[in-house]
């Protein structure tokens, strides 16, 4: 019963909102006058998700959006624009009107791989976006099968050193975050893996559980269920401090390898010309939403660490990661 009323209210609210946008329109251009009372009551804001409905990204957006919507008093619609390895959706955000009514995921570091590779024909780069903050992080871990003969990171990496190019490692996609992070590891530690690409995080996890690959690297969320059930053993988390999420997993630093943290951030951005006041308003609203207890609970449920990173820090991090990753991508491109 409660359900039904909730449904009708949403439908009603949405139709009212639609009617209002219809009348109010988007006639206002990107002048700062529009920014003073942003967002207009009942305006519709699009949250662009550059992947399919139901993808990890998408589910997180659908958790956070209602809380932001409540705070802003505007209607936030999660819009999926899949295609071109996220380039289509990111293009859309970069080229949308800079009025704060369109923002989207610019996850770091995955967005770097999109525009640093010229063959992807991305119509954007770092300067096309202004971040409004990042509401969650996903630490990067290395996992092996529970029966693996490698009991520690050192054993694993020693084996790699002993037989370069022999030890297999799974990724969730070619030229994706996993792949780039593995190349970073190879470069920084002088290792040589046999990298095998799978189609998704789930396929990669299946390959670890079945023992088809020797180990895998990836965001902790994709391993979380199997880590909890004991099917996958996590050897390390690539962070400076242990993750509260997987507190018993040692950091890479503690194992004696000096590697920068690799966590990915669920960052959101607006087109770069958006007025400062609008950006600030969106940032404060996203922060509030990200710090709502119910939202945090749901994010944790989705095996994602709710961590608030302010917009300014996201910008800085974006720049740092770009410097770090660019050479790796250039090298990947040369190999083709």
């Amino acid at each position: 019963m409660k359900k039904l009323t909730a449904l009708t209210t949403t439908a009603l609210a949405a139709s009212v909102a639609l009617a209002l946008t219809g009348c109010g329109g988007q006639a206002g251009s990107t002048t700062s006058t529009a920014a003073v009372d942003f967002p207009k009551a009942g305006a519709t804001i699009e949250w662009i998700v550059p992947s399919a409905a139901g993808a990890g990204n998408d589910i997180l957006a659908r958790i956070v959006a209602p809380a932001m919507q409540e705070d802003l008093g505007a209607n936030i619609k999660v819009v999926n624009k899949e295609g071109g390895s996220q380039v289509v959706g990111l293009n859309y955000v970069a080229q949308s009107k800079a009025d704060g009514l369109t923002f989207g995921y610019t996850n770091i570091p995955s967005i770097l791989g999109r525009y640093l590779d010229p063959s992807k024909k991305a119509a954007f780069d770092r300067s096309s976006f202004t971040p409004i903050g990042s509401f969650a992080t996903n630490s990067v871990v290395i996992g092996v099968n529970k029966d693996s003969k490698y009991k520690s990171l050192k054993e694993l990496f020693d084996a790699v050193k002993a037989e370069p190019g022999k030890i297999t490692v799974g990724t969730d996609s070619r030229a994706g975050d996993d792949h780039i992070n593995l190349r970073l590891l190879e470069n920084q530690l002088g290792l040589d893996f046999n990298i095998v690409h799978y189609n998704s995080g789930a396929d990669k996890v299946a390959a670890i559980v079945s023992g088809e690959v020797d180990f895998a690297l990836g965001g902790v969320s994709s391993f979380f269920g199997q880590y909890k059930s004991g099917d996958i053993k996590l050897l390390t988390v690539i962070e400076d401090n242990t993750s509260p999420f997987v507190p018993d997993v040692p950091t890479m630093k503690s194992a004696g390898y000096d590697v920068k943290p690799m966590a990915s951030n669920f960052a959101l951005s607006v087109p770069s010309k958006t007025p400062k006041e609008v950006v600030a308003k969106l940032e404060s609203s996203l922060k509030k939403a990200a710090e709502t207890a119910a939202v945090q609970e749901k994010l944790k449920g989705a095996a994602t660490q709710p961590t608030w990173v302010p917009a300014a820090e996201v910008s800085k991090m974006w720049e740092e990661r770009e410097t770090l990753i660019k050479p790796v991508i250039d090298e990947l491109l040369k190999q083709q």
Binding site: A11, A14, S15, L18, T44, E46, K77, V79
Partner: peptide, 8 residues
């Protein structure tokens, strides 16, 4: 599509 399904 817009009101009931919430797509844009």
């Amino acid at each position: 599509f817009e009101v009931w399904l919430g797509t844009a």
